[in-house]
Computed example of a mutant assay.
Amino acid sequence: MDSFSSKYLDGCREALEEEQSRSLAATNYWEKVDRALVHRDWDALYLKIAPLVDSAAFGSEQVQSLIAAHYDIACRFYVPTARAYVGMALHYQENADMAAFHNAYQPGLAAFLADAMSIYARTTLT
């Protein structure tokens, strides 16, 4: 995340808010999303990512493959642009509840996800 300017990151936060708001309005608050399944799928995914926090590189093929699965799950709600996906990564780190949720799997998971998601956005979504 350090390679992005603060102006770009602010734009990513705005993109996340705008895209999610637009999607929520268009889908009656994501009423057709099976949230229980989404949360089970994210749980299974985070259990695979957590052991990698201290040993794998954010941009490794293994990590990026798992982040692709993360993005696919996120797309069940709406398809985030690269900027919105980076905004989501920032939200994981900056929102105390989200950081605590992710870090309960493994200390540092929120920051690890943020860096890995930003690489995925930069290399795959743009």
Rank of each mutant, 00 (worst) to 15 (best):
M1V: 12
M1P: 09
D2F: 05
S3I: 05
S5G: 06
S5T: 15
S6E: 15
K7N: 10
K7W: 03
Y8C: 03
L9G: 09
L9M: 14
L9E: 08
D10R: 13
G11D: 08
G11M: 09
G11A: 11
A15I: 02
L16P: 04
R22I: 00
S23L: 01
A25R: 14
A25Y: 02
A26G: 06
T27G: 03
N28H: 05
N28K: 01
N28M: 04
Y29A: 03
W30S: 14
W30C: 13
E31R: 14
E31Q: 03
K32W: 07
K32F: 06
V33K: 10
R35Q: 10
D43H: 15
D43N: 15
A44I: 00
Y46K: 14
I49V: 07
I49H: 00
A50K: 05
A50C: 11
P51R: 01
D54I: 05
F58I: 08
G59T: 15
G59S: 11
S60A: 04
S60R: 13
E61C: 06
Q64A: 09
Q64F: 06
L66N: 07
A69V: 08
A69E: 15
A69T: 08
H70A: 11
Y71V: 14
R76P: 02
Y78N: 02
V79W: 00
V79P: 00
T81V: 15
A82Y: 03
R83L: 08
Y85H: 11
V86H: 02
V86I: 15
G87Q: 04
G87R: 02
M88I: 10
M88W: 13
L90A: 07
Y92E: 08
Y92R: 14
Q93G: 12
Q93V: 15
E94K: 12
N95V: 11
A96L: 08
M98V: 03
A99E: 13
A100Y: 03
N103C: 07
A104G: 15
L109D: 00
L109P: 02
A110I: 05
A110E: 06
A114H: 09
M117G: 03
M117L: 13
M117K: 04
S118R: 05
Y120N: 07
Y120D: 06
Y120V: 07
A121Y: 03
R122P: 00
T124S: 14
T126S: 08
